[in-house]
Amino acid sequence: MAGKKVSILNAFRTIIWPRRNLVLIGLILIIISRAASFVAPMSLKYLMDDIIPNKDIPFLKVLIGIVILAILVQAVTSFLLTKILSVQAQYMISELRAQVQQKVLTLPIRFFDNTKSGELVSRIMTDVEGVRNLIGTGLVQLVGGTITAVVALILLLRISVSMTLFALIPLAVFAVVALKAFKVIRPIFRNRGKINAEVTGRLTETLGGIRVIKGFNAEEQEHDVFKEGVHRLYQNVKKSLTATAVMTSSSTFLLGVAT
């Protein structure tokens, strides 16, 4: 199933651009949601500086109303983002699965002779799920996180430039660590899909041809092959967990230093 490598530009042109109206609505909802998320922390300034010292109860009621309204906006936009982007991403995944299956059926017989049917099933059903990172939760997290980071940086710079720059030093170190970690983690996750497809494919064919296996007394051989595949999958997961743990521990320490 190897083919031409898909570039980001090609993915944007074929996946995102035809759905630009939905993506635009989603981006607007993300901006509204992130703007509403700043209301609660910013309200603390007015609570501590104005309401408590002056015992201004009418202002307190107004502030509580604004905070509740902001929370309501966040809840509504979260629901709409799920309905618009996440559901659309799942629809695209189902469409791509059908297209991949249609493409596989047109391949020559020799391709199927050299490829396990169970492996093809696994690849068709799981490989296309990465689309949700382009339209779905991945897009929401990327755009929302970027907006939050930019706005927070501007607010921090307005409060104190020197303290903000000092806090950014450990964050910059964490960014370097994260980049290094992702260079290690990405190939591991990419290889995991391949290993999982091979193991699943072999298991599917084993269970489907169990009469033949029993007829040739090959149960032990199939067990050894499956055990070796499961062990390779375990080693892959072990590497990813180790790399993720290093990045998580680094973030905990460096973000704690920044705090």
Rank of each mutant, 00 (worst) to 15 (best):
Phe216Trp: 07
Glu220Gln: 12
Thr204Ala: 09
Tyr46Val: 07
Lys239Gln: 09
Ala36Ile: 07
Leu44Ser: 02
Gly193Gln: 03
Thr148Tyr: 13
Gly26Ala: 11
Val67Lys: 07
Val73Asn: 05
Gly201Thr: 12
Arg97His: 06
Leu29Gln: 12
Ser162Trp: 07
Ala181Pro: 09
Ala35Glu: 02
Leu153Ser: 15
Met92Phe: 02
Leu60Met: 09
Thr259Pro: 01
Leu24Asp: 02
Lys194Pro: 06
Phe79Pro: 00
Arg190Met: 14
Gly118Phe: 00
Val150Asp: 07
Leu85Ser: 12
Ile52Pro: 09
Lys5Asp: 11
Ala11Ser: 02
Gly229Thr: 14
Gln235Val: 03
Leu44Glu: 13
Ser7Asn: 10
Ile28Arg: 05
Leu233Val: 07
Gln235Ile: 02
Asn114Lys: 14
Ile169Ala: 13
Asn236Cys: 15
Gly215Glu: 10
Glu205Tyr: 12
Ile147Asn: 08
Phe38Gln: 00
Ile71Arg: 02
Pro187Ile: 09
Val23Ile: 04
Ser122Cys: 04
Ile169His: 04
Ile213Lys: 13
Ser37Ile: 00
Val150Gln: 10
Ala181Arg: 09
Arg123Pro: 02
Lys227Asp: 05
Asp49Pro: 08
Asp50Glu: 14
Asn10Trp: 12
Ala152His: 10
Leu254Trp: 10
Met92Leu: 15
Gln102Lys: 15
Ile210Ala: 04
Val39Glu: 04
Val151Asn: 09
Ile147Gly: 01
Ser94Leu: 09
Leu24Val: 00
Ala149Lys: 01
Gln88Asp: 13
Leu179Gly: 10
Leu105Tyr: 11
Leu44Val: 14
Met125Trp: 00
Leu171Pro: 06
Arg232Asp: 13
Lys45Gln: 06
Val237Arg: 00
Val76Leu: 14
Ser7Asp: 11
Phe111Ser: 10
Tyr46Trp: 09
Ala243Lys: 03
Leu107Ile: 08
Ile15Ser: 00
Tyr234Glu: 04
Ala197Asp: 13
Val67Asp: 11
Phe38Thr: 01
Gly145Phe: 10
Leu254Cys: 13
Ala40Arg: 04
Arg132Phe: 01
Gly201Asp: 08
Gly208Cys: 05
Arg19Pro: 02
Leu179Glu: 04
Lys180Glu: 05
Thr14His: 11
Glu228Trp: 09
Asn191Ala: 14
Glu95Ala: 15
Lys55Thr: 00
Ile15His: 01
Leu139Lys: 01
